[in-house]
Amino acid sequence: MPVSQDLALQARNLRKRFGGEDVVCGVDLDIAAGECFGLLGPNGAGKTTTLKLCLGLIEPEEGSARLLGMEVPARAREARAGVGVVPQFDNLDPDFTVTENLVVYGRYFGPGDAAIRARIPQLLEFAGLQGRAEARIQTLSGGMKRRLTLARALVNDPQLLFMDEPTTGLDPQARHLIWERLRHLMQQGKTIVLTTHFMEEAQRLCTRLAIMDRGRIIATGSPRALIAEHIESQVVEVHGPGLGAWMVRARSLAPRFERAGETVFCYAADVAPVIADLRRQRELVYLHRPANLEDVFLKLTGRDLRD
């Protein structure tokens, strides 16, 4: 396999087993510097394990990874000096203030305290935590904690940022603020690799995506390209009494129908015949919208629950 030095992250045929189960089975990644790359997948798809393999925190059974041009896990310590990580679950130090969290974390990268402290005002401003420098962690909201975790991941001014489900559990305001901060980082030329199962997040932020399921990457491309490639452009969602009978009659009006419980999804490039027919159905409720990444995701990974 050719190995490029310019890629921020490259993985070849990564495989990892846990307790006799294949968690990651043959993942390839090529992420260029400056990209915002999204790894999408249902719970248990192997996203977090893939990130850990790429960070050199765990060793693969097979395959190899290069992080900022350095082989991991062999040179993981060196490589991670240029990387920031926002983990899935907050692991800020509850005994420390906001500033202490940043200083203590900065020391793990080796510079002196003076250099770290010089960076702190800038980090607090970036995270919108000015005036909270001496606040205890327990007094911060969920959004503030997430922003502090992001600031902590930037303490070493990394080239590459890994974010594992950066906005899970946040309210819309807090989520939008995180997205805005990430766009700012992208403008600075940083490479971002994030995992998410929020399609909206992926569609808004990512230049390129990989959809992962059962340890494998099943589709890759830009959000637009994935939608164009995998799904009809328009969707009509229908529910209400008499749904079954209507679906049987309407079959010929659209190329693809999908039923999930009490809802029918009609997919077509032109949904005008479906809508014309639905206008005559008093009982049925419908919603017409453009196809989005979630439709692609559900088509590729199925509608079954994953726990």
Binding site: R77, E78, R80, A81, P87, N91, D93, Y105, N156
Partner: peptide, 14 residues
């Protein structure tokens, strides 16, 4: 419980 070690090993620490 606090996952402090997990945070530390994300830095260039083993």
């Amino acid at each position: 419980v606090q996952k402090t070690w997990e945070a530390i090993v994300n830095a260039p620490m083993t």
